[in-house]
Simulated assay, not measured.
Amino acid sequence: MGFVSTLIDLSQGILFVESPCCKERLQITLESNVYEDAIEDIELYGQRYEVYSYDNETNAWFSEAIGRTCSLLRYSSFNQDFMLKKIKGAATCRDMKNKLNFANEAQFLLVSEESVCDLNRRLSSDVQKGISGKAMVQVSASRFRPNLVVSGGRPYAEDGWRYIRIGNKHFSSLGGCNRCQIINLALNSGQVQKSNEPLATLASYRRVKGKILFGILLKHATVDGEQQQGADSWLHVGQDIHPD
């Protein structure tokens, strides 16, 4: 799944999907009303969902890309509720109703370029001091699989954000994202390379109550007078971030 790459063309309203396992690039229409005739009910982890299903060609493409039979389903709901709690100044979240648009923790994951740069500085320092005993590892923001990448602030400033606004869209922070060994997998030229970094370095200074936090989880929040799905429901590269 990590080798699947995507590109959204808002002018055409199309999501392009590519994989080294597939000869052709897949095109998926973004407008949900195109699939209104393909609505079905499913049960996933004990939760009922009303979803849009895609055609056999789309399902066959993803089955080939992933290497196992699968179906692409689309679900959209704004009725998510979470419990937010503080642990020694760092926030973590717990889903209260298990309605997360198929996400296992939250709708969005935000990572700061400054935080990534600070991590890379620590990785370089460890190599220079001979702590790691291995070749230097440098990571990009994409290693953490974020939806949103921001820049222009201090490293880890996002830890203290409770709410942010991007354009006319509002989001509430659900706390830090707990990291696992998946971030130690580097995907290069169709090959998977594994090491103990960057998780080992993160564990040395980003551990909170046994959790290794990097990046923050976000939930889309509607405000008074804002429609849940309006004509301009997209975020754009280069938009200003307004944290609170």
Rank of each mutant, 00 (worst) to 15 (best):
L185T: 08
E50A: 07
H170C: 11
H242Y: 13
V111G: 01
Y49R: 06
A157G: 10
N59C: 11
E40H: 07
R179Y: 04
E43F: 10
E114G: 07
L202H: 00
G167P: 01
V34D: 14
E24P: 00
T201M: 12
E18Q: 13
L30M: 13
S63V: 05
G160C: 09
F144I: 02
E113W: 03
E40C: 15
S71L: 08
V127T: 04
F144Q: 00
D232H: 12
D95Q: 13
C21I: 09
D81R: 12
A106Y: 02
K169E: 04
E197D: 06
Y205K: 10
N188T: 15
R48S: 14
R206W: 00
G215C: 08
Q12Y: 06
N59W: 04
A65C: 08
E50R: 14
D240L: 15
G152N: 05
L109P: 00
P155K: 08
C70P: 02
T58E: 08
I216E: 05
T29I: 13
Q191I: 10
F78S: 15
I164S: 05
K169G: 01
F3K: 14
S5Q: 12
E105S: 11
T69A: 11
R143T: 01
V111R: 04
I66E: 01
N98H: 11
F144P: 00
Q47L: 03
V150Y: 03
Q107A: 15
G176I: 02
N33I: 09
H236I: 05
G190A: 13
M96D: 07
N188M: 13
L119M: 12
L148W: 06
L100M: 14
I66W: 00
G153L: 12
D232F: 10
S125N: 12
L15G: 08
S53Y: 04
D244N: 08
V223M: 09
Q47W: 01
I39P: 01
Q227N: 10
G13V: 05
E40G: 06
L123M: 04
L26F: 02
D9S: 14
G130V: 06
E50L: 07
K23T: 08
L100W: 02
R25D: 02
L100T: 15
Q27H: 07
Y156P: 00
I42S: 07
A106G: 15
F171D: 02
F62W: 02
T29A: 09
V4M: 15
V17I: 12
F171C: 06
L30Y: 01
R179C: 03
F16Y: 15
I66T: 08
L123E: 00
E57I: 08
Q191S: 11
K194H: 01
A38Q: 09
F3L: 11
D95M: 11
W161K: 10
N196I: 04
L218S: 08
S63P: 02
V139G: 02
N147A: 12
A221C: 14
K169V: 03
S132W: 01
R94M: 11
Q227F: 07
L217P: 01
G130I: 11
T69Y: 07
K211L: 06
M136R: 13
L174E: 04
A65H: 06
